[in-house]
Design a protein around this nucleic acid. Structure first.
Lengths: 198, 198
DNA sequence: CGGTTTTTTGAATCGAATCAATAGGCGTGG
DNA sequence: CCACGCCTATTGATTCGATTCAAAAAACCG
Protein backbone atom coordinates (compact mmCIF):
# COMPACT_ATOMS: atom_id res chain seq x y z
CA UNK A 1 0.00 0.00 0.00
CA UNK A 2 2.43 2.66 -1.15
CA UNK A 3 0.13 5.60 -1.28
CA UNK A 4 -0.39 8.93 0.26
CA UNK A 5 -4.06 9.00 1.12
CA UNK A 6 -6.37 11.90 1.74
CA UNK A 7 -9.55 11.08 3.64
CA UNK A 8 -12.62 12.56 1.95
CA UNK A 9 -15.45 11.10 4.00
CA UNK A 10 -15.98 8.50 6.71
CA UNK A 11 -13.12 7.58 8.98
CA UNK A 12 -10.02 5.46 8.80
CA UNK A 13 -8.09 3.51 11.37
CA UNK A 14 -4.40 3.03 10.84
CA UNK A 15 -2.50 0.35 12.66
CA UNK A 16 0.71 -1.59 12.75
CA UNK A 17 1.43 -5.18 13.58
CA UNK A 18 3.74 -5.40 16.55
CA UNK A 19 6.57 -7.92 16.67
CA UNK A 20 4.42 -10.32 18.64
CA UNK A 21 1.71 -10.23 16.01
CA UNK A 22 -0.67 -7.93 17.82
CA UNK A 23 -2.52 -5.17 16.09
CA UNK A 24 -1.50 -1.79 17.44
CA UNK A 25 -3.74 1.12 16.56
CA UNK A 26 -1.64 4.12 15.67
CA UNK A 27 -4.24 6.63 14.71
CA UNK A 28 -7.68 7.58 13.54
CA UNK A 29 -8.17 9.85 10.56
CA UNK A 30 -11.10 12.06 9.77
CA UNK A 31 -12.01 13.76 6.50
CA UNK A 32 -9.44 16.27 5.34
CA UNK A 33 -6.64 14.49 7.11
CA UNK A 34 -3.70 12.85 5.37
CA UNK A 35 -2.41 9.32 5.93
CA UNK A 36 0.98 8.04 4.94
CA UNK A 37 3.24 11.03 5.19
CA UNK A 38 5.79 8.90 6.95
CA UNK A 39 5.87 6.76 3.86
CA UNK A 40 8.14 9.39 2.40
CA UNK A 41 11.05 8.08 4.42
CA UNK A 42 10.91 4.42 3.68
CA UNK A 43 8.83 4.53 0.53
CA UNK A 44 6.73 1.85 2.17
CA UNK A 45 3.96 2.30 4.67
CA UNK A 46 4.94 1.09 8.09
CA UNK A 47 1.25 0.80 8.83
CA UNK A 48 -2.03 -0.47 7.47
CA UNK A 49 -5.31 1.32 7.19
CA UNK A 50 -8.92 0.17 7.26
CA UNK A 51 -12.16 2.10 6.99
CA UNK A 52 -14.26 2.17 10.13
CA UNK A 53 -17.38 3.04 8.17
CA UNK A 54 -18.26 3.83 4.57
CA UNK A 55 -15.47 6.10 3.52
CA UNK A 56 -14.06 7.76 0.48
CA UNK A 57 -10.40 8.42 0.10
CA UNK A 58 -8.21 9.88 -2.54
CA UNK A 59 -5.04 7.90 -3.08
CA UNK A 60 -1.95 9.23 -4.71
CA UNK A 61 0.58 6.55 -5.61
CA UNK A 62 3.83 7.27 -3.87
CA UNK A 63 5.99 7.48 -7.02
CA UNK A 64 3.61 10.02 -8.52
CA UNK A 65 3.64 11.94 -5.30
CA UNK A 66 7.41 11.97 -5.15
CA UNK A 67 7.53 13.16 -8.71
CA UNK A 68 5.14 15.97 -7.87
CA UNK A 69 7.41 16.84 -4.99
CA UNK A 70 10.37 17.07 -7.30
CA UNK A 71 8.50 19.20 -9.79
CA UNK A 72 6.98 21.63 -7.36
CA UNK A 73 9.09 23.54 -4.85
CA UNK A 74 5.86 24.96 -3.54
CA UNK A 75 4.46 21.53 -2.75
CA UNK A 76 7.78 20.74 -1.19
CA UNK A 77 7.43 23.61 1.21
CA UNK A 78 3.90 22.62 2.08
CA UNK A 79 4.96 19.08 2.74
CA UNK A 80 7.80 20.09 5.02
CA UNK A 81 5.39 22.18 6.95
CA UNK A 82 2.80 19.42 7.17
CA UNK A 83 5.35 16.88 8.27
CA UNK A 84 6.80 19.25 10.76
CA UNK A 85 3.38 19.96 12.20
CA UNK A 86 2.55 16.29 12.43
CA UNK A 87 5.89 15.89 14.14
CA UNK A 88 5.06 18.44 16.80
CA UNK A 89 1.68 16.84 17.37
CA UNK A 90 3.06 13.33 17.63
CA UNK A 91 5.82 14.52 19.92
CA UNK A 92 3.25 16.07 22.20
CA UNK A 93 1.20 12.92 22.18
CA UNK A 94 4.35 11.08 23.11
CA UNK A 95 4.99 13.31 26.09
CA UNK A 96 1.47 12.74 27.16
CA UNK A 97 0.71 9.11 26.53
CA UNK A 98 3.48 7.54 28.54
CA UNK A 99 2.81 9.44 31.70
CA UNK A 100 -0.89 10.10 31.97
CA UNK A 101 -3.49 8.09 33.82
CA UNK A 102 -6.40 6.42 32.14
CA UNK A 103 -9.03 9.08 32.60
CA UNK A 104 -6.74 11.77 31.30
CA UNK A 105 -6.07 9.73 28.19
CA UNK A 106 -9.75 9.17 27.58
CA UNK A 107 -10.52 12.84 28.15
CA UNK A 108 -7.80 13.85 25.70
CA UNK A 109 -9.12 11.37 23.20
CA UNK A 110 -12.65 12.72 23.34
CA UNK A 111 -11.46 16.29 23.11
CA UNK A 112 -9.21 15.49 20.20
CA UNK A 113 -12.13 13.98 18.28
CA UNK A 114 -14.33 16.88 19.22
CA UNK A 115 -11.80 19.43 18.08
CA UNK A 116 -11.28 17.70 14.78
CA UNK A 117 -15.01 17.54 14.16
CA UNK A 118 -15.32 21.21 14.95
CA UNK A 119 -12.62 21.96 12.42
CA UNK A 120 -14.87 20.56 9.75
CA UNK A 121 -17.96 22.28 11.07
CA UNK A 122 -19.68 19.35 12.68
CA UNK A 123 -21.23 19.44 16.10
CA UNK A 124 -18.32 19.08 18.51
CA UNK A 125 -20.59 18.31 21.45
CA UNK A 126 -22.43 15.35 20.07
CA UNK A 127 -20.98 12.71 17.83
CA UNK A 128 -20.77 9.02 17.13
CA UNK A 129 -17.58 7.13 17.75
CA UNK A 130 -16.76 5.28 14.58
CA UNK A 131 -14.42 2.87 16.34
CA UNK A 132 -15.26 0.27 18.97
CA UNK A 133 -13.97 0.17 22.56
CA UNK A 134 -11.29 -2.27 21.61
CA UNK A 135 -9.75 0.16 19.11
CA UNK A 136 -9.94 3.04 21.54
CA UNK A 137 -8.31 1.00 24.27
CA UNK A 138 -5.61 -0.19 21.94
CA UNK A 139 -4.94 3.32 20.72
CA UNK A 140 -4.74 4.77 24.22
CA UNK A 141 -2.65 1.92 25.54
CA UNK A 142 -5.17 0.83 28.15
CA UNK A 143 -7.72 -2.01 28.34
CA UNK A 144 -11.27 -2.20 27.07
CA UNK A 145 -12.53 -2.45 30.61
CA UNK A 146 -10.73 0.68 31.67
CA UNK A 147 -12.11 2.62 28.73
CA UNK A 148 -15.58 1.47 29.61
CA UNK A 149 -15.21 2.21 33.30
CA UNK A 150 -13.82 5.65 32.54
CA UNK A 151 -16.64 6.57 30.20
CA UNK A 152 -19.12 5.34 32.80
CA UNK A 153 -17.45 7.46 35.42
CA UNK A 154 -17.54 10.56 33.23
CA UNK A 155 -21.21 9.89 32.70
CA UNK A 156 -21.86 9.46 36.41
CA UNK A 157 -20.22 12.86 36.91
CA UNK A 158 -22.42 14.45 34.24
CA UNK A 159 -19.43 15.26 32.10
CA UNK A 160 -20.62 13.27 29.13
CA UNK A 161 -23.55 11.17 28.11
CA UNK A 162 -22.86 7.75 26.62
CA UNK A 163 -25.19 5.58 24.61
CA UNK A 164 -22.99 2.95 23.04
CA UNK A 165 -21.01 4.80 20.43
CA UNK A 166 -23.05 7.92 20.74
CA UNK A 167 -21.30 10.56 22.81
CA UNK A 168 -22.54 13.88 24.04
CA UNK A 169 -20.30 16.30 25.85
CA UNK A 170 -22.21 17.92 28.70
CA UNK A 171 -19.44 19.69 30.54
CA UNK A 172 -16.55 20.54 28.30
CA UNK A 173 -14.80 22.53 30.97
CA UNK A 174 -14.66 19.56 33.30
CA UNK A 175 -13.40 17.37 30.50
CA UNK A 176 -10.70 19.86 29.69
CA UNK A 177 -9.60 20.16 33.26
CA UNK A 178 -9.30 16.39 33.47
CA UNK A 179 -7.31 16.41 30.26
CA UNK A 180 -4.80 18.85 31.72
CA UNK A 181 -1.86 16.91 33.08
CA UNK A 182 -1.88 17.75 36.78
CA UNK A 183 -3.29 21.19 36.25
CA UNK A 184 -6.21 22.75 38.15
CA UNK A 185 -8.13 19.93 39.78
CA UNK A 186 -11.77 20.73 40.37
CA UNK A 187 -13.95 22.71 38.05
CA UNK A 188 -17.51 22.14 39.14
CA UNK A 189 -17.32 18.44 38.71
CA UNK A 190 -18.63 17.59 42.15
CA UNK A 191 -19.53 13.98 42.84
CA UNK A 192 -16.85 11.35 42.95
CA UNK A 193 -14.79 13.08 40.30
CA UNK A 194 -11.61 13.28 42.32
CA UNK A 195 -8.98 14.04 39.75
CA UNK A 196 -5.72 13.98 41.60
CA UNK A 197 -4.07 17.26 42.39
CA UNK A 198 -0.51 16.20 41.95
CA UNK B 1 16.23 29.73 20.53
CA UNK B 2 15.21 29.65 16.88
CA UNK B 3 17.92 27.45 15.54
CA UNK B 4 18.42 24.16 13.91
CA UNK B 5 21.26 22.60 15.83
CA UNK B 6 23.63 19.84 14.89
CA UNK B 7 25.39 18.11 17.79
CA UNK B 8 29.12 17.80 17.19
CA UNK B 9 30.35 16.42 20.49
CA UNK B 10 29.03 15.76 23.98
CA UNK B 11 25.35 15.23 24.53
CA UNK B 12 22.25 17.37 24.71
CA UNK B 13 19.01 17.03 26.58
CA UNK B 14 15.94 18.58 25.08
CA UNK B 15 12.87 19.23 27.14
CA UNK B 16 9.60 21.09 27.27
CA UNK B 17 7.79 22.76 30.08
CA UNK B 18 4.42 21.19 30.61
CA UNK B 19 1.34 23.29 31.34
CA UNK B 20 1.78 22.72 35.05
CA UNK B 21 5.32 24.02 34.94
CA UNK B 22 7.08 20.69 35.08
CA UNK B 23 10.09 19.91 32.98
CA UNK B 24 9.39 17.08 30.58
CA UNK B 25 12.40 15.50 28.92
CA UNK B 26 11.64 14.87 25.29
CA UNK B 27 14.90 13.50 24.03
CA UNK B 28 18.61 13.01 24.28
CA UNK B 29 20.86 13.83 21.36
CA UNK B 30 24.26 12.42 20.56
CA UNK B 31 26.86 13.72 18.11
CA UNK B 32 25.69 13.72 14.53
CA UNK B 33 22.07 14.09 15.50
CA UNK B 34 19.92 17.11 14.68
CA UNK B 35 17.78 19.09 17.09
CA UNK B 36 14.98 21.43 16.18
CA UNK B 37 13.55 19.98 13.00
CA UNK B 38 10.08 20.51 14.34
CA UNK B 39 10.90 24.18 14.53
CA UNK B 40 10.16 24.27 10.83
CA UNK B 41 6.44 24.19 11.53
CA UNK B 42 6.08 26.91 14.08
CA UNK B 43 9.29 28.77 13.44
CA UNK B 44 9.83 28.58 17.16
CA UNK B 45 11.24 25.75 19.16
CA UNK B 46 8.61 24.05 21.23
CA UNK B 47 11.42 22.77 23.37
CA UNK B 48 14.59 23.81 25.16
CA UNK B 49 17.96 22.18 25.10
CA UNK B 50 20.81 21.97 27.58
CA UNK B 51 24.18 20.29 27.38
CA UNK B 52 24.61 17.32 29.71
CA UNK B 53 28.40 17.55 29.48
CA UNK B 54 30.92 19.62 27.58
CA UNK B 55 29.48 19.74 24.13
CA UNK B 56 29.96 21.42 20.82
CA UNK B 57 27.09 22.20 18.54
CA UNK B 58 26.66 23.90 15.26
CA UNK B 59 23.71 26.25 15.17
CA UNK B 60 22.02 27.46 12.06
CA UNK B 61 19.64 30.34 12.61
CA UNK B 62 16.20 29.36 11.46
CA UNK B 63 15.72 32.15 8.94
CA UNK B 64 19.03 31.26 7.29
CA UNK B 65 18.02 27.65 7.28
CA UNK B 66 14.67 28.40 5.70
CA UNK B 67 16.39 30.49 3.06
CA UNK B 68 18.72 27.61 2.32
CA UNK B 69 15.68 25.39 2.01
CA UNK B 70 14.15 27.75 -0.51
CA UNK B 71 17.35 27.97 -2.52
CA UNK B 72 18.15 24.30 -2.60
CA UNK B 73 15.68 21.72 -3.83
CA UNK B 74 18.23 19.12 -2.93
CA UNK B 75 18.33 20.20 0.70
CA UNK B 76 14.57 20.22 0.60
CA UNK B 77 14.49 16.59 -0.36
CA UNK B 78 16.98 15.71 2.33
CA UNK B 79 14.94 17.52 4.93
CA UNK B 80 11.73 15.81 3.96
CA UNK B 81 13.48 12.52 4.30
CA UNK B 82 14.98 13.41 7.66
CA UNK B 83 11.68 14.65 9.02
CA UNK B 84 9.90 11.64 7.70
CA UNK B 85 12.42 9.32 9.32
CA UNK B 86 12.18 11.12 12.61
CA UNK B 87 8.44 10.81 12.25
CA UNK B 88 8.62 7.04 11.88
CA UNK B 89 10.93 6.78 14.84
CA UNK B 90 8.81 8.97 17.08
CA UNK B 91 5.69 7.14 16.02
CA UNK B 92 7.29 3.86 16.99
CA UNK B 93 8.35 5.27 20.32
CA UNK B 94 4.78 6.37 20.79
CA UNK B 95 3.43 2.91 20.17
CA UNK B 96 5.86 1.59 22.64
CA UNK B 97 5.99 4.06 25.48
CA UNK B 98 2.33 4.14 26.38
CA UNK B 99 1.92 0.42 26.72
CA UNK B 100 5.17 -1.04 27.99
CA UNK B 101 6.14 -1.87 31.52
CA UNK B 102 9.03 -0.26 33.31
CA UNK B 103 11.72 -2.80 32.65
CA UNK B 104 10.92 -2.90 28.97
CA UNK B 105 11.24 0.86 28.79
CA UNK B 106 14.57 0.82 30.56
CA UNK B 107 15.84 -2.00 28.35
CA UNK B 108 14.81 -0.11 25.24
CA UNK B 109 16.46 3.00 26.54
CA UNK B 110 19.77 1.26 27.15
CA UNK B 111 19.65 -0.43 23.77
CA UNK B 112 18.82 2.81 22.03
CA UNK B 113 21.83 4.51 23.57
CA UNK B 114 24.01 1.55 22.76
CA UNK B 115 22.88 1.46 19.16
CA UNK B 116 23.48 5.15 18.70
CA UNK B 117 26.95 4.87 20.17
CA UNK B 118 27.72 1.97 17.87
CA UNK B 119 26.64 4.07 14.93
CA UNK B 120 29.45 6.47 15.73
CA UNK B 121 31.94 3.70 16.40
CA UNK B 122 32.08 3.83 20.16
CA UNK B 123 31.94 0.81 22.38
CA UNK B 124 28.26 -0.16 22.50
CA UNK B 125 28.78 -2.46 25.47
CA UNK B 126 30.31 -0.06 27.90
CA UNK B 127 29.44 3.58 28.24
CA UNK B 128 28.72 6.36 30.64
CA UNK B 129 25.25 7.77 30.98
CA UNK B 130 25.51 11.51 30.56
CA UNK B 131 22.16 12.14 32.18
CA UNK B 132 21.12 11.49 35.76
CA UNK B 133 18.41 9.11 36.95
CA UNK B 134 15.93 11.93 37.20
CA UNK B 135 16.27 12.72 33.50
CA UNK B 136 16.03 9.08 32.52
CA UNK B 137 12.93 8.60 34.64
CA UNK B 138 11.33 11.73 33.26
CA UNK B 139 12.10 10.70 29.70
CA UNK B 140 10.71 7.20 30.14
CA UNK B 141 7.66 8.38 32.01
CA UNK B 142 8.45 6.44 35.18
CA UNK B 143 9.92 7.40 38.56
CA UNK B 144 13.52 7.67 39.69
CA UNK B 145 12.96 4.81 42.09
CA UNK B 146 11.67 2.54 39.37
CA UNK B 147 14.63 3.32 37.14
CA UNK B 148 16.95 2.53 39.99
CA UNK B 149 15.17 -0.68 40.95
CA UNK B 150 15.12 -1.82 37.36
CA UNK B 151 18.81 -1.21 36.82
CA UNK B 152 19.53 -3.04 40.06
CA UNK B 153 17.41 -5.93 38.93
CA UNK B 154 19.16 -6.13 35.57
CA UNK B 155 22.42 -6.18 37.47
CA UNK B 156 21.25 -8.92 39.81
CA UNK B 157 20.38 -10.97 36.73
CA UNK B 158 23.83 -10.37 35.24
CA UNK B 159 22.39 -8.55 32.28
CA UNK B 160 24.26 -5.34 32.94
CA UNK B 161 26.78 -3.96 35.36
CA UNK B 162 26.03 -0.61 36.96
CA UNK B 163 28.46 1.69 38.70
CA UNK B 164 26.65 4.96 39.03
CA UNK B 165 26.49 6.33 35.52
CA UNK B 166 28.86 3.74 34.17
CA UNK B 167 27.01 0.98 32.35
CA UNK B 168 28.33 -2.24 30.94
CA UNK B 169 26.14 -4.57 28.95
CA UNK B 170 26.90 -8.16 29.90
CA UNK B 171 24.10 -10.00 28.17
CA UNK B 172 22.78 -8.13 25.19
CA UNK B 173 20.54 -10.96 24.15
CA UNK B 174 18.72 -10.94 27.45
CA UNK B 175 18.35 -7.18 27.26
CA UNK B 176 16.94 -7.44 23.78
CA UNK B 177 14.48 -10.10 24.74
CA UNK B 178 13.27 -7.92 27.60
CA UNK B 179 12.95 -5.03 25.19
CA UNK B 180 10.68 -7.06 22.95
CA UNK B 181 7.07 -6.28 23.77
CA UNK B 182 5.61 -9.60 24.83
CA UNK B 183 7.83 -11.59 22.55
CA UNK B 184 9.79 -14.68 23.58
CA UNK B 185 9.91 -14.51 27.34
CA UNK B 186 12.83 -16.59 28.50
CA UNK B 187 16.24 -16.39 26.99
CA UNK B 188 18.04 -17.21 30.12
CA UNK B 189 16.57 -14.22 31.80
CA UNK B 190 13.92 -16.27 33.52
CA UNK B 191 12.44 -14.97 36.72
CA UNK B 192 14.14 -12.91 39.32
CA UNK B 193 15.55 -16.07 40.84
CA UNK B 194 17.19 -17.57 37.80
CA UNK B 195 20.51 -19.27 38.02
CA UNK B 196 23.55 -17.13 38.07
CA UNK B 197 27.27 -17.38 38.37
CA UNK B 198 27.27 -15.75 41.74
C1' DC C 1 -36.49 -14.60 18.22
C1' DG C 2 -31.64 -17.37 19.25
C1' DG C 3 -26.88 -16.76 18.85
C1' DT C 4 -22.97 -13.86 18.64
C1' DT C 5 -20.34 -10.05 19.72
C1' DT C 6 -19.66 -5.85 22.25
C1' DT C 7 -19.99 -3.41 26.46
C1' DT C 8 -20.50 -2.90 31.22
C1' DT C 9 -19.66 -4.13 35.93
C1' DG C 10 -17.49 -6.68 39.90
C1' DA C 11 -13.68 -8.85 42.62
C1' DA C 12 -8.99 -10.10 43.02
C1' DT C 13 -4.22 -9.37 41.68
C1' DC C 14 -0.17 -7.02 40.10
C1' DG C 15 2.98 -3.33 39.00
C1' DA C 16 4.45 1.19 39.70
C1' DA C 17 3.97 5.36 42.53
C1' DT C 18 4.53 7.21 46.78
C1' DC C 19 6.37 7.86 51.26
C1' DA C 20 10.30 7.23 54.06
C1' DA C 21 14.75 6.04 55.30
C1' DT C 22 19.53 4.69 54.26
C1' DA C 23 23.75 4.58 51.51
C1' DG C 24 27.03 6.43 48.29
C1' DG C 25 29.61 10.47 45.74
C1' DC C 26 31.65 14.61 45.73
C1' DG C 27 33.23 19.18 46.82
C1' DT C 28 34.41 22.42 50.53
C1' DG C 29 36.79 23.72 54.39
C1' DG C 30 38.94 22.40 58.75
C1' DC D 1 43.62 13.78 54.74
C1' DC D 2 39.49 13.52 56.98
C1' DA D 3 34.94 15.54 58.50
C1' DC D 4 30.89 17.63 57.17
C1' DG D 5 27.03 18.76 54.33
C1' DC D 6 24.68 18.39 50.08
C1' DC D 7 22.97 15.90 46.43
C1' DT D 8 22.14 11.62 43.95
C1' DA D 9 21.03 6.92 44.11
C1' DT D 10 19.38 2.78 46.24
C1' DT D 11 16.31 0.07 48.97
C1' DG D 12 12.11 -0.97 51.78
C1' DA D 13 7.06 -0.64 53.03
C1' DT D 14 2.71 0.83 51.81
C1' DT D 15 -0.84 2.61 48.75
C1' DC D 16 -3.25 3.21 44.54
C1' DG D 17 -4.58 2.62 39.79
C1' DA D 18 -4.98 -0.41 36.10
C1' DT D 19 -5.08 -5.18 34.59
C1' DT D 20 -6.91 -9.58 34.79
C1' DC D 21 -10.34 -12.92 35.37
C1' DA D 22 -15.16 -13.68 35.49
C1' DA D 23 -19.82 -12.88 34.68
C1' DA D 24 -23.96 -10.24 33.50
C1' DA D 25 -26.21 -6.94 30.37
C1' DA D 26 -26.89 -4.69 26.10
C1' DA D 27 -26.49 -4.20 21.14
C1' DC D 28 -26.28 -6.53 16.69
C1' DC D 29 -27.56 -9.64 12.97
C1' DG D 30 -29.17 -13.29 10.39
Amino acid sequence: MKNVRVVRSGSIKSYQISPDGEEVVSGFFLPGEVIGLDALATETHPSFAVALEDSQTCDIPLPDFLKMLRDSPKLNEVMIRLLSEEMVETRELLLVVGRLDAQTRVALFLLSLSRRLARRRQNPDQFKLSMDRRDIANYLGITIETVSRTLSKFQRNDIIEVHGKQIRILNRQALESIAMPGLNASTQTGGESSQSTG
